[in-house]
Design a protein around this nucleic acid. Structure first.
Lengths: 189, 189
DNA sequence: AGCAGGTGTTTTACTCGTGAAATAACCGCG
DNA sequence: CGCGGTTATTTCACGAGTAAAACACCTGCT
């Protein structure tokens, strides 16, 4: 993911579009550039998609710092988080699905995480192809230490929106997500 | 970064709402899991941040396909797009800032893109350290061919939100982005 | 002039993720 | 039983990104 798609990247700041863009976030500047080069195109979607991408990039950047301090990659934390929140053992395949990554990536991460004593694996007794992975106490404690920190940061960032704005935003993003997940068939129902 | 942080990942496990019900996107299921494991935490931010991350991931996935067909990485397209929308030559350093990536990455991409005849470089006459990069005709045509396609897809996805919803969403994301960019100081002002 | 220090770009060494092939084990059917 | 087909996981080869070092060049100071 990356940080910036063409419509997400920043230019100079200056703003005149829409109510929030009066302050001129970086996306507004980019959209303006595109409009002046391609006046015939409807650039409205960029105001949403571009901002989503840019928000995601900035959030990731901000939230990766605490993880790094704990010696974890975001992907590793996602894996541990999946184990923590489901509350039961998962197979590598389950973990790949939960974390939206390839099986190969999960294999590598599990090797790391088990070596570091954050996760444990045990073979299935019936089907010797499958493994079951669970958190160690250390793994659980690590997740439980990091999660509140992340949530606190997120809460602080969202503070500026006000309660109603937060609710609206969550709902609208939910609608959009339903569109996207429907469109791209979300596999598991 | 990727697709799914701990609070973004989808839950297969939660059959409760079965289909993507009234509000049943994948993020809602994940949030529900966290709440049941950590009832004391305020999980509200996940409803926004998680959805932003997931939307970004799905959008990228969807929009990468057309790029791939054109033989481009998203990062490469971002670079070409920065050149296209600014309308003038940029130095590698400028491109790194515009596309939020490291200078090293830009160097590599430029090598690729010039070899493929999509961009050209020329040395600065005054300062022989700096290079100036511009699009070739082929590069410009490629961007101009891909961009409308991407916008059309985005328009289609956003269709489902309705005009008012779209405006609200853009504005709210703008507000959030201002928070984030302010908080993380956005270099270029 | 000449050098100290700063800036723009590239190189290097490495990490991480991926797709595809390889491996290993299960299942059902003759 | 044993063979074909399928599924779970790992291995392999590679592409892409990064941070830090290297390089090349400029600028200001003496």
């Amino acid at each position: 993911m990356t940080a910036a798609n063409g419509r997400t990247a920043a230019g100079a700041a200056d703003g005149a579009t829409g109510r929030a863009a009066a302050r001129g976030d970086t996306v507004a500047a980019v959209v303006r550039q595109w409009r002046s080069v391609h006046p015939e195109l409807d650039t409205a979607p960029m105001e949403i998609i571009g901002r989503i991408n840019r928000c995601a990039a900035l959030l990731q950047q901000a939230e990766d710092a605490p993880l790094r301090r704990a010696g974890l990659t975001r992907a590793e934390f996602d894996l541990l988080g999946a184990l923590r929140r489901t509350g039961h053992e998962l197979t590598p395949g389950d973990l790949a699905r939960e974390t939206f990554s390839s099986g190969a990536a999960v294999t590598k991460r599990l090797k790391q995480l088990t070596e570091r004593g954050l996760a444990e694996r045990r073979g299935d007794t019936r089907d010797r192809r499958v493994a079951h992975v669970r958190l160690t106490d250390a793994g659980r404690d690590l997740v439980d230490a990091i999660l509140p920190e992340q949530l606190a940061y997120e809460t602080a960032v969202l503070e500026g929106l006000g309660g109603a704005g937060r609710d609206d935003l969550a709902a609208l993003l939910g609608d959009l997500l339903v569109q996207l997940e429907g469109r791209l068939g979300v596999a598991r129902a």
